[in-house]
Amino acid sequence: MRPLGATAHRPGPRRRDPAPSRLAYRLHRLWLTPLVRRLVRVGLPAGALALLAWAVFADADRRAAIAAPVDALVESIRQRPEFMIGRLEITGASDVVERAVRARGPDPLPASSFDVNLDALREEIEALDAVASAELQLRGAGVLAVRITERRPAILWRSTEGLSMLDRGGHRIARVTRRAARPDLPVIAGAGADAHVGEALALIETARPLADRLRGLTRMGERRWDVVLDGGQRIMLPAEAPERALERVIALDQARDLLDRAVEAVDMRNPARPTVRMAGPAVAELRRIRQLERGESGR
């Protein structure tokens, strides 16, 4: 009997020829070529992606439509109350400086801390003449704390541009309209005096015995100091070791009352040969006395 099952569980017509067709064989070989393989596996998907991206982003409206929600999200995070600065708390500053700092601070005031560049703001504040250093700190509850260390005025400087206050380092702090506004500060004058404020302060300290007569110091030729006393008297100091020269003059004054006499200037520029310039009437008087001493009659 012919077996019935023999053909029953054969699903389809059996493929007689296992050989690949010429085309299939060639395509298979092409597929095994490394360059083609790489091109299809990497190049094709990459190209398709690039094409898709270009097609999406070529339209300006669509670009805007994609960008707008992103921008809105970023903005909503920036504008959260946790990141907002509501108040500027300034410590250690005088009224004038505080006003100047407020003018430079973020404006209008409820501002996002993302928009405030603290470093730039600190540099801007430190660029103020009156400010030595500033510390900025974002505190909770929307407070931007600014702690300011002001420069201490040490001296007044009269230059061609007017009268200004300097600190010990010679840095300009502010302009002063009148000498009388700061009677507690000594005055210096002359070009280049601001670069030697420390020296000037030391000289003024040395000249304390003459404090009631001292008018100020003048920088001569950007090289040396003159001490100016009231009545136009001057003590001309050398460029080197001016303090010792000044001390000698003060000692001379205390011993012989040098400066109370009719002396126009004490010239200490050459320390080995101190010279005294006398006032005009005094010179005439001296000549008269010498003539008398020589036994001559007056004129």
Partner: peptide, 14 residues
């Protein structure tokens, strides 16, 4: 062709 294609497929090389 059959033999070559099968061998190439196993070798994954042209």
């Amino acid at each position: 062709r059959t033999a070559l294609q099968a061998a190439q497929k196993m070798a994954q090389a042209r």
